[in-house]
Nucleic acid binder design. Sequence first.
DNA 1: TTCAATCCTGAGTTTAACAGTCGGGATTGG
DNA 2: CCAATCCCGACTGTTAAACTCAGGATTGAA
Lengths: 143, 143
Amino acid sequence: MKLSAKSHYAMHAMLHLASYLNDGPQPLRRIISAGQPREYTEQLLGALRRSGLIDSVRGTKGGYLLARKPEEITVAQIIESVEGPLTLSHCVLNEDHCENSESCTLKSTWEHLTRGIEEVLGTVTLKDMLNNPALIPQKKVIH
Amino acid sequence: MKLSAKSHYAMHAMLHLASYLNDGPQPLRRIISAGQPREYTEQLLGALRRSGLIDSVRGTKGGYLLARKPEEITVAQIIESVEGPLTLSHCVLNEDHCENSESCTLKSTWEHLTRGIEEVLGTVTLKDMLNNPALIPQKKVIH
DNA sequence: TTCAATCCTGAGTTTAACAGTCGGGATTGG
DNA sequence: CCAATCCCGACTGTTAAACTCAGGATTGAA
């Protein structure tokens, strides 16, 4: 139940892009913070681009920028881009894996919990994080 | 954001113990299902016992049993026993890790999200899962 | 038109956690 | 005493994460 370094790097990068929204494309060099491996982060930005969360500009003066407004980008989207689909169990994805019926009381439980978590992560946007100091506003009824 | 096999095995075992609540201690042999490695599961049951979720009885006719009522055991507790503390980021645990202030707008976000997820996993009990077929009842306001 | 700054990509390598195995010891009912 | 059980630490194998590297493609500017 921990997130990998990927998510941290990706979140940090996205937060940076959100902060420098009006300063043109941000080159990788400016996106990474101290101790953050350059080439590795580059790969993650590739994933974020392929997911449509950011755009890239090549060449001198190139760099990365948000493809949408900060309020339209959620933590869930960022994490899913780099970590893959957000699901607690392969059981939820692979139908055939759970044949032994009784054992898969679990299945419906995982599905339910996954939905819950998706909802938690889906309700915090980059904009919320920028307005952050007074934490993130949120009041939500989960079913 | 995926759970490891540990959680699956542990959940399965706990579900079994909840099912055979009145049949005395359940030996490992009866707890594991097809394809579930015996010795590995044994380790996990050790963790569950050390967390106080189950008790064990040694010797012939020995086995494992729930230490509390099914409605008092949550998915969060089970997962935490075997996977360690439920937190998205080491940042939340290690104070010193996040010195660069701006970077750790992230910190309060992780804390907030972790609380949300804890709440999701903490509201489903073994009892809920037994009553399962009609999914898990739940209506909760998260802050 | 050349050059340097950038993004882009795929193929490595290293590392650490997960997953599983093994051997033997301790406890206890029959 | 013996067999069934839990208990525990050490070991091994496997896999995914976390990097590294080498080189190619694009583009603004000197």
